[in-house]
Simulated assay, not measured.
Amino acid sequence: MAEAGTILNGHRTERDGGRPLPSVLIATRHGESVANVEFRRADESGALSVPITSRDADIPLTMHGQTQAQALGRWWAELPPADRPRAVWCSPYVRTVETARIALAQASGLGAVPVGLPVRHDERLRDRELGVLEMLTRAAIEKEHPAEAARRRRMGELYYRPPGGESWLDVALRVRSVLRDLSEEEAGRPVLVVAHDCTVLMLRHVLDRLTEPQLMALEPVGNCSASLWRAADGRLRADGWNATGHLPG
């Protein structure tokens, strides 16, 4: 029988069938981005386009998003010492990189974590790829790709894969892969994951073993929200979901 725990690199680990686990896993979505604002406006007005010309990967935070990232850093600094992340895994997209950098600077400035704590950028944490629907508003999808819009409604978001893009379950496969590496490399210590709404949602799906109805009933993942899982009884168990009380109004 596998041990319930062991010492690895000076850290106490929990084990699930012999696999080490981080002591705490905290996941956050990036702060408000320029695209979040523009697509919200487009959905409200029925616009066919948004004034964005960059790649999705290059979209930055808004000023409000930067403020949210600072608030996330202060929340980080106020956690009990044993829960304060000592490693950061981050999507390589600009908006997530900015969020991690600002939050880390805030937490470091408050003495909560060492200055210069490394950030690992992992492409498996990137946002869902939408293929031919990339950067299209809801109105534009209905007008330019009516067959795809109908197929999306029929199949549901969990299974729908746009041409050249990914379904939610495709993202879940990436998440399972990164969780295996993260658990091995960060065994026994708290970790912060900075990613995107779909990525964080698929973390919940994988770790909490949610069914499709349970998943679809969840509220949207908030910008700079905090979701936390704790190693207990051989697995990571939820101890908080999508909390936003630390953010400015």
Results as ranks from 00 to 15, higher is better:
202 M>C: 09
180 R>F: 04
186 E>T: 13
201 L>W: 03
179 L>Q: 02
187 A>R: 03
197 D>Y: 10
185 E>L: 07
178 V>D: 08
206 V>Q: 01
192 L>V: 03
189 R>W: 08
211 T>H: 14
206 V>A: 02
203 L>S: 06
195 A>I: 12
184 E>R: 13
202 M>D: 01
177 S>H: 12
207 L>E: 04
195 A>R: 05
192 L>W: 09
184 E>A: 15
186 E>K: 05
184 E>K: 07
202 M>V: 02
176 R>W: 00
176 R>K: 07
190 P>C: 05
177 S>D: 14
208 D>P: 05
184 E>T: 12
201 L>M: 10
206 V>S: 00
211 T>Y: 13
201 L>I: 02
193 V>I: 15
201 L>F: 05
181 D>P: 00
187 A>Y: 05
184 E>V: 14
207 L>M: 09
191 V>E: 03
197 D>R: 14
182 L>Y: 12
185 E>N: 08
186 E>H: 10
210 L>N: 09
191 V>T: 07
184 E>S: 13
206 V>I: 10
191 V>R: 04
190 P>L: 10
192 L>M: 07
199 T>G: 12
187 A>W: 07
206 V>F: 01
210 L>P: 12
207 L>I: 07
177 S>A: 14
180 R>W: 04
190 P>H: 08
188 G>N: 06
192 L>I: 00
211 T>W: 14
199 T>F: 13
